[in-house]
Design a protein around this nucleic acid. Structure first.
Lengths: 377, 377
DNA sequence: CTCTCGTTTGAATCCTACG
DNA sequence: CCGTAGGATTCAAACGAGA
């Protein structure tokens, strides 16, 4: 199957329906959208600039410099400017969307609240907010905040009356161990072989999204043959996944470098046959239960005394989920190592609690928690 | 320990500081907030209602299904009213918050985007958005959307310049298997024995939050003795957890039924003692020791040679507490950075001294000094 | 070939006390 | 207010070198 990626002519697309199908339109997002016909696409995936507002350079503990997203296209002078930009492209998207079409917008806490509020103001009807939990997010290097480990996506229909939107509930459920798909998804960030790199070995696009994420989105809200629009096409993940899954795409992108990379990428994609069009399953969550979970759940009480199996050493549980013994304090692992004079220690098997006069490893309590939490994955 | 929960007199609270401590103020949220002094609370947890209806009845998330407002004007008007309400209570909170205080607001996709955008407009500085993943969320019965399995919390400081906010990074990390705490948290919804029920067996409050959630929030951004304000007190989870964790609270609530239930609930809470409330801190909290102190105390001699861990670089200690190496001289940090060609360097962990043929970081000697200081009081 | 270990990297609003 | 200097700070995954 040969795909061609003409750069659609903005001035003529509106008059000649469908010549823009499976192509990348070069140009400003709003101008290009305005050239498309009314009610012409079934779904939209938008990954707009996040307006990160970064400060100076950020160093890792090993003194290397974080390669930040400081591109010109992510800079806005003020919230007002960002809001105006957001309103413009969302409004243009709304006209192009079919009455029963739906739109996805992805963002971080820097921009997603503004985007969501504007979507409501423009009469989009929010169906879900979906959390993309990253298995391998960048750490918080300075220890001044929680590790920013997720991004947020808003899924919305054109308006509250649009009840006929596509939602492949049963397929999603069947692909998810026969339980309905939740609003929190777990995927790795895009890296390794999937990440597009230039001749210089550097990443082509700073924020390339993983194909698995787009695959779940496209499989959830479109049917084979549907048309998916991506007004911030970038490296073309939307187009590549759409083609592979037997959907049509339209991309809009300003920068020729991105268009070139995306075109070559999509060209190389082999579409799947009908039988293979199953939903990609996300990564199965590891049931990680930390010690604080035991304290927060009440299975272990602050003030409670833990000992080793032979009651040689003891420590007191503190409300913050750390242990204290003598003048030392730390995690169950660090303190276990410390009292024994070791470099390392598995606190889960070393520390014991007493129940009915019997010492049991605190690891036993972890299984209790795991059983409770298994459902959430 | 007996707690009393006087319903603080709104008209007099501002003039009589602290009589509102550990009490529930009855009344309208904004009016009550306006009666509190400037910069008087360390942290705020807010669980606001998510929408206004014509009759002025407030509905909470997951309480009832919103009927679609198909009248465009009404819909716009209701968003506007909700925004005005949100702006009013957030602004009132901002005045009451200490300059280095932080605020948490929880919501769902129905309201959190508006809340977040308004917070940014009011100059709050967003630090994180935190996702509360529910282990046992309500299913989506109609199969028309993804299961709404999470709620979103926004954590923000008073403004971008507020760098001195409390964040117990080291305790959180130690309690989390020695990896930093992420922005996605997993907790069960409030049910079972924790859920307050009336004489009729019905739940007292429709959206009672789990104590484990509040415990993590309070432990992350406050110290023992801090004051936590909850302007939508409801069933009083914030107060109950604050009391148990040795923090002070202020609640604001309109409905007497909720006040009665919360008062009885908090009254029954047994506060934790002192030792287990100690929050683990890291190196940042240790008293500073100048390298010069090591030289003056004789632990390091002038003329002594220091090297890095691999003996690649070396430097000689001078009597004034500086290092010299190959024509350069400076502090342990400056010279460590200089020889490596870095902007910065932690000289305490970079430079080593030799003892019994083994290289040890000079940081070890700093702990000797600190231990001596501790003994001396 | 496998296994180990070190290196690199990803949408980041990322330090703070003191003079 | 600013400038300077002390010195604290990272997780998971992919990849490549070397045993």
């Amino acid at each position: 199957m040969a795909f061609v990626f003409p750069l659609a002519d903005i001035t003529s697309t509106r008059q000649q329906p469908k010549n823009w199908l499976n192509s990348i339109i070069k140009g400003d997002c709003v101008a290009a959208l305005n050239a498309l016909p009314d009610h012409s696409v079934d779904a939209i995936f938008a990954d707009p600039p996040y307006n990160l507002q970064l400060g100076g350079v950020l160093h890792r503990p090993d003194h290397s410099v974080v390669d930040a997203v400081d591109d010109e296209w992510d800079q806005f002078a003020s919230f007002e400017m960002y809001d105006a930009f957001t309103r413009a492209w969302l409004l243009a998207c709304r006209r192009v969307l079919k009455p029963n079409g739906t739109i996805w917008v992805i963002g971080s806490y820097h921009n997603i609240f503004r985007v969501g509020a504007i979507m409501q103001d423009l009469n989009f009807w929010l169906l879900n907010d979906i959390v993309w939990r990253k298995t391998n997010p960048m750490p918080n290097f300075k220890g001044r905040r929680f590790q920013n480990a997720h991004e947020t996506m808003i899924w919305a229909s054109r308006d509250a009356k649009s009840k006929g939107y596509t939602f492949n509930y049963d397929a999603l459920k069947a692909s998810n161990d026969d339980v309905q798909m939740r609003s929190d998804w777990l995927f790795p960030i895009c890296s390794g072989g999937e990440r597009l790199k230039g001749d210089d070995g550097k990443k082509v696009h700073p924020t390339q999204k993983p194909e698995a994420l787009l695959a779940r989105i496209i499989m959830s809200c479109t049917k084979p043959g549907d048309i998916i629009l991506d007004p911030f096409f970038g490296s073309g993940t939307t187009g590549a996944v759409a083609k592979r899954l037997g959907r049509n795409f339209v991309g809009i992108e300003r920068e020729q470098d991105y268009i070139d990379a995306a075109s070559a990428r999509i060209e190389a994609v082999e579409p799947l046959g009908g039988a293979e069009l199953t939903v990609m399953t996300g990564k199965k969550a590891e049931p990680r239960v930390a010690f604080n979970t035991l304290v927060e759940s009440g299975l272990i009480r602050p003030g409670q005394v833990l000992t080793d199996a032979k009651r040689k050493w003891s420590a007191i549980v503190r409300a913050d989920g750390t242990l204290a013994s003598g003048g030392s304090a730390g995690s169950i692992h660090r303190l276990g190592a410390k009292v024994q004079g070791f470099d390392a220690c598995n606190g889960w098997t070393f520390w014991h609690y007493e129940e009915d006069g019997v010492l049991k490893p605190i690891d036993d309590l972890r299984t209790v928690i795991r059983n409770d939490m298994a459902k959430a994955g």
